[in-house]
Design a binder for these strands. Structure first.
Lengths: 192, 192
DNA sequence: TAGGGTGAACTGTACGTTCAGTTCACTTAG
DNA sequence: CTAAGTGAACTGAACGTACAGTTCACCCTA
């Protein structure tokens, strides 16, 4: 019976790892979240860390993913189209802030290191795609958006531009810029 | 008079480096284009390589940038709006092909290594933005696109979604997907 | 006493640097 | 027109560093 509540020590160690990683990320971005640094700050040995995560990037993805989920709750005001717009606004202001850099570094790392990409998907992309899919479906039901466009495509169109700016960093992604971009993108999705 | 045609050796060495890098990139992507490997294959010593490029990523960016520029000529059929659409199609099919992976790796590397980002800009982003800016201006003059949208924003909206898909790789970016995405994005830009 | 956890050492890879010695394009004297 | 010379550029091989990920003998706590 290895499952169930038989790992209290493990859990404490894991929490400590994630906490330390979160701190390091916010202090110096992904480059600062070295495995040795995480080990030192959390007081958990590297050997133990590698018992629970397959690679460095996975640790950072999990730690940062929890922050991000908390920072961007799914809006639910009842009005589908404006919920969608609000969600885009929340995400874009997240990207435009200091956390955006870390997100970009994490995305970059998951491209460079394919082993990490499932983790990145689990903690960022899938949840976000699901959330948008739900908003999209609601908007579709009300006939507020173009029915020939899939939720997948809509997600790409709404968030892709922001991420492009974020990754290239030139010109910088300010909140104002983010608003311009996302409203232009939204323009292609709303029903005529 | 040290200038003028006094550097034939340098040029030969540099060409050799770029050629070797291009080969390595196409064989094994960015991870294969190690500085040692480039040095070995080109016959140019690492010391010399580092006299001409600041870091590994810069070499790869330059080598790959030349390929990409050749692979995607700027369309000019006279019709502004369809030139714009054609350009998006060319770029997206480039991304959807085997070169897309390398592009993604390069973009990722330029995020992880800020020293390389000017190089990446020079060989990819700026040229592309300029090209689109020109097409956008032509389309604007004809009243075919929304005038309140800047060329910068338009570029983000058109190419960002493709790059987002490419980077996350899930779901995969096929040519069909790329077409759906880009036509949806274009929908927000054309004049009503 | 058994299943974690510890810590420290170790391997492997790749970046970027350094330097003594060599090669090459060009120049100037004979 | 040739031969010696000059300096900038390239070579080769070693080195230092950083960090990922692994291993193992030991310890501690439930």
């Amino acid at each position: 019976m290895p499952e169930q509540s038989s790992h209290p020590r493990s859990l404490r160690a894991m929490d400590s790892v994630l906490g330390a990683t979160t701190e390091l990320l916010s202090e110096g971005g992904l480059p600062a979240a070295t495995v040795d640094a995480i080990s030192a700050r959390s007081g958990v040995s590297k050997a133990t860390i590698y018992k629970h995560w397959p690679c460095r990037t996975a640790i950072a993805a999990e730690a940062f993913g929890k922050q991000m989920a908390a920072a961007i709750p799914l809006p639910d005001k009842g009005d589908a189209a404006s919920d969608l717009a609000e969600q885009v606004r929340r995400v874009s202001s997240f990207y435009a802030g200091p956390q955006g850099t870390i997100f970009a570094q994490l995305l970059a790392a998951s491209v460079a290191d394919p082993a990490a990409s499932p983790y990145f998907r689990e903690y960022f992309l899938d949840k976000r795609r699901e959330a948008v899919a739900e908003l999209w479906q609601r908007a579709l039901d009300r006939g507020e958006v173009k029915p020939e466009i899939s939720a997948e495509t809509a997600t790409d169109v709404l968030f892709g531009p922001l991420i492009f700016r974020l990754m290239t960093g030139h010109p910088p992604l300010t909140t104002e810029e983010a608003d311009k971009i996302s409203s232009a993108a939204l323009g292609g999705l709303l029903a005529d």
